[in-house]
Write a protein that binds this DNA or RNA. Structure first.
Lengths: 207, 207
DNA sequence: TAGATTGTTAATCGATTAACAATC
DNA sequence: TAGATTGTTAATCGATTAACAATC
């Protein structure tokens, strides 16, 4: 199912396929051809077939793709067939916003707790989630399995905190701090650099 | 200065150059060669030179690039040499988090107000910013120049609201709703699909 | 069976990297 | 001038698109 090495361009598109297929399913569509999907998604049918075939033949000649089956297969490829536990490190505005984000739960992505250096935030609750002081991290991680740390902390602390979390066993980081984290190669990092995204927009506005 | 058509791959890298160059400047570094910058940024020196030369020769043979000058030039390319006014539409957690984000201001990106459908939020303030009811939009836009609308609303309403904003003259959208907006071609849209970003991470965690 | 549409190979296109002459 | 490093052309690599035989 999971082939040797798939380019990042392909992986980036998988969640997008997921989104459109989920919409189709909600509309009651049971099967779809690469051609029809390409019309909706504004990509070529060729690319859709090429992308999907990196992982195996999910379609059927003369018929197309079964929407539900495809959702399940792509979900499996993305690892969404098993639940993931997340913690948010940095209980500022952004951290709290992400903690309150409903969309993740439906995909098996559960935010379990928040951590913050500010002692006055410790032991409070946000949307039913406990906020702990940072020094509780080691104990928490010993008792609770955590798959992903969401870093919503200032860039000055991000590297040190990521290193600490790595030392405590965390291997995946969703990083909102504006730094490139340096971590051992078995760590996975996905960066969300919001201001870089906004600057792309200002470029296109002015051109 | 601004060449005909530059690929999106190049544009995506410009804010990143900006970030590293700004750090260098803060460290007191006055000049840098493509080779040194490439070591820092983990890209090839060739790519840096190639990227920059799309816009003109900012360097000097035998010397390298002047850090301050390069920051200024890339800033100009990205449109950061003039201020931009933003409004946030959707005063939920994410909208409020973005409104409180300090980083933008230093780049001349000013969030001026928030809008929300919930009447109970109307006329309140968030971090010194007024929150208005949605029906105040036309009057507000008539009186205040707005360059960018930040959409932090549910995906169900995003298309309608974007269309309305376009009708009122807004031409750039920073879209956090999980839909592809359909707008006339002079509109600029930059999407931030957070859950798609997170799904890329789950892919790499499991592979 | 005939028609439709996939899976897959081959062709094209674009982006990245290498190389080096130009020049500060 | 000699050394360094850019600007730019040419070579390579990878990703996208087109085409079509396989097959449901």
């Amino acid at each position: 199912m999971a082939a040797d090495h798939i380019s990042q361009a392909v992986i980036k598109r998988l969640p997008r396929y997921m989104r459109f297929l989920t919409e189709l399913k909600e509309e009651g569509v049971e099967r779809i051809s690469s051609r029809e999907l390409s019309d909706r998604m504004q990509v070529t049918a060729s690319q859709i077939r090429q992308d999907l075939n990196h992982f195996g033949g999910f379609g059927q000649q003369g018929y197309g793709y079964n929407v539900s089956k495809l959702i399940e297969e792509i979900g499996r490829i993305l690892g969404l067939d098993r639940p993931h536990n997340l913690i948010v490190v940095g209980a500022g505005n952004l951290g709290r916003a992400l903690a309150g984000y409903g969309n993740f739960t439906s995909r098996g992505l559960y935010i379990r707790a928040l951590f913050d250096i500010a002692p006055e935030k410790a032991e409070t609750e946000i949307r039913g989630l406990k906020v702990y002081a940072m020094d509780r991290l080691p104990a928490y991680l010993k008792e609770n399995p955590v798959d992903v740390a969401v870093l919503t902390i200032p860039k000055e602390n991000a590297q040190a905190v990521a290193g600490q979390l790595y030392g405590l066993g965390v291997r995946a980081f969703w990083n909102f701090a504006h730094v490139d984290l340096a971590l051992p190669e078995d760590a996975r990092v996905e960066n969300v650099y919001l201001s870089e995204s906004l600057m792309q927009l200002t470029y296109y506005m002015n051109h």
